[in-house]
């Protein structure tokens, strides 16, 4: 596994540390183990926030099969959402900010790609969530996608609600779905060019007229001006 990935993992681990003994979430551990067994080589990685949430990363090929397994074996019949993440490191949003917004210099412009929970390998990652209302447990799924204009199996045979979500992903990220019944634009006018949620899609209004910056930071209740200047930068 690449090094940025392990970094991200460690930070999450640290956040759980303060409790004396790490909580073992048996329900979710067993769930992940079962998925791992069913998917075999399709399963890549997983992450558990004890008592809170679970993430599973699968391969692009196993995307549809994962949905089938979750739906049929685990009762995850509530379709929550399907979207994607563009992990391209981007100065986007920062280079157009006013100088006053750059409150500290530590926020360096990234150049290496860095992935979040459960790791990653490629620029585009599908992200979906399904839920089991009876057991009241949800799962976040991720899948790395190959290439700049990836193609992946549609979820519509399993979750008909994925139809519009996939159309949205298509127009926002340029990820298309195989065997989708109606792969056309959902939101934007047909003549619109580009995929807005990609990190390299610029917001032209911000270029034309940069944001003036944080000019009015509101005081927290019970704070006066003197205190805020001290407590501002710490913690």
């Amino acid at each position: 596994m690449s090094s940025p990935d392990t970094n991200a993992e460690e930070i999450i681990e640290e956040s759980i540390e303060p409790q004396e003994e790490p909580i073992i979430d048996e329900k979710r551990e067993a769930f992940v183990a079962s998925i791992k067994q069913d998917l075999g080589s399709g399963f890549i990685d997983s992450h558990i926030d004890p008592e809170i949430d679970v993430w599973i990363r699968v391969t692009q090929e196993a995307w549809l099969e994962t949905a089938k397994i979750l739906f049929e074996k685990h009762g995850m019949n509530f379709f929550n959402f399907l979207s994607a993440i563009d992990w391209k490191p981007s100065p986007f949003g920062r280079e157009m900010d006013a100088a006053i917004d750059n409150v500290d210099d530590e926020v360096a412009v990234e150049t290496e790609m860095e992935w979040g929970v459960a790791g990653g390998e490629k620029r585009f990652q599908l992200l979906a969530r399904v839920h089991n209302p009876v057991a009241n447990m949800g799962v976040n799924l991720k899948a790395d996608l190959e290439g700049d204009f990836p193609e992946v199996d549609t979820w519509t045979p399993v979750y008909p609600g994925a139809n519009w979500h996939e159309r949205e992903v298509m127009e926002m990220f340029g990820i298309s779905f195989k065997n989708h019944p109606n792969m056309v634009n959902l939101y934007l006018p047909t003549e619109f060019e580009g995929h807005p949620l990609r990190k390299d899609f610029p917001l032209l209004s911000r270029r034309a007229k940069p944001w003036p910056g944080i000019v009015d930071v509101e005081l927290m209740p019970g704070e006066n001006d003197d205190e805020t200047e001290e407590s501002g930068e710490e913690t």
Binding site: L188, P196, L203, L204, S205, R206, W211
Partner: peptide, 13 residues
């Protein structure tokens, strides 16, 4: 004038 969506890609300002 576009309001809170002054920098949006889909809103007429």
């Amino acid at each position: 004038c576009g309001g809170p969506y002054w920098d949006s890609y889909s809103v007429t300002k």
